[in-house]
Design a protein around this nucleic acid. Structure first.
Length: 269
DNA sequence: CTGGGGACGGGGCCC
DNA sequence: AGGGCCCCGTCCCCA
């Protein structure tokens, strides 16, 4: 079941919202010209288009992104509301550590991360705290508590309503996270576009820098977005992820399958 | 029309 | 409790 369908925005014409209008009061460093026509020369001086490493050096542990954003650069390029100023867009461990591209094969990518299993998540530790409602196990009491609050403890389950829309959440944390999608506190200093979460802004910044840290192990293509690499990997697979139930034809994307079905699948194999 | 890439959104989970 | 990351997904555009 899709997880991101609950809050669906329907943008017409240009489709994309004018974030700078939405949160103009938080935008303090807008460039005078559209980013489509103006990218600061400083940006390119500081961050030349990265050289995409050759596939043979992309094995586990062999590759560090040629573009690494440190905190001083972050404060140069984007601003956030005070609540987020402590760690606006940290150079995440995910970006600074080697990318395990071996995990991006079409088979290996199913529900796995690129990180090696941590010792703390070993079976012995992970089984310590059990939910008496659904028998799910967690390695920490905090994990069990959060699970019970969200899913299994109907006595303590509460409703937190969003003041901007009709959505309700069972935890304050979930509500706070959702409210970010209304307030869009993370603002790009280059173009003024605003985002709900720092890492979304981080991904957006790559559209300015040209950084593409996610490389395909099958070809030389590289991507700025991990999801886009995942979708790309489907193109290397003979049997793709999304299959028509009528004709067994497979597609690399759900949207393509939907189009296929809507256009009237013959149902023949 | 189809397939693929680019950009982005949001919930869940782990630390 | 909150931040960060991951995964799944959508929408749009273009060849």
């Amino acid at each position: 079941m899709p997880r991101s369908f609950l809050v669906k925005k329907h943008f017409s014409a240009t489709k994309k919202p004018n974030y700078s209008e939405l949160e103009s009061q938080t935008v303090t460093h807008l460039f005078p010209l559209s980013p489509a026509v103006y990218i600061s020369p400083f940006l390119y001086d500081k961050f030349p288009i990265p050289v995409i490493p050759q596939p043979e050096i992309l094995s586990t542990g062999a590759y560090f992104s040629p573009l690494v954003w440190d905190t001083s650069l972050l404060t140069t390029f984007f601003t956030t509301e005070p609540d987020y100023s402590k760690s606006p867009i940290s150079t995440s461990s995910d970006d600074s550590k080697p990318l395990d591209l071996t995990s991006f094969s079409s088979e290996d990518d199913e529900g796995k991360t690129s990180d090696p299993p941590s010792p703390a998540s070993s079976a012995t530790e992970a089984e310590k705290f059990h939910c008496n409602q659904c028998s799910k196990s967690y390695s920490t009491f905090a994990g069990l508590s959060k699970h019970k609050q969200l899913h299994c403890d109907s006595q303590t389950r509460k409703s937190f309503s969003c003041k901007y829309c009709e959505k309700e959440y069972v935890s304050l944390g979930a509500l706070k996270m959702h409210i970010r999608s209304h307030t869009l506190p993370c603002v790009c200093k280059i173009c003024g576009k605003a985002f709900s979460r720092p890492w979304l802004l981080q991904g957006h910044i790559r559209t300015h820098t040209g950084e593409k840290p996610f490389s395909c192990t099958h070809c030389n293509r590289a991507f700025a977005d991990r999801s886009n690499l995942r979708a790309h990997l489907q193109t290397h697979s003979d049997v793709k992820k999304y299959q028509c139930r009528s004709c067994s034809r497979t597609f690399s994307r759900m949207s393509l399958l939907h189009k296929h079905e809507e256009s009237g699948c013959s149902g023949s194999h």
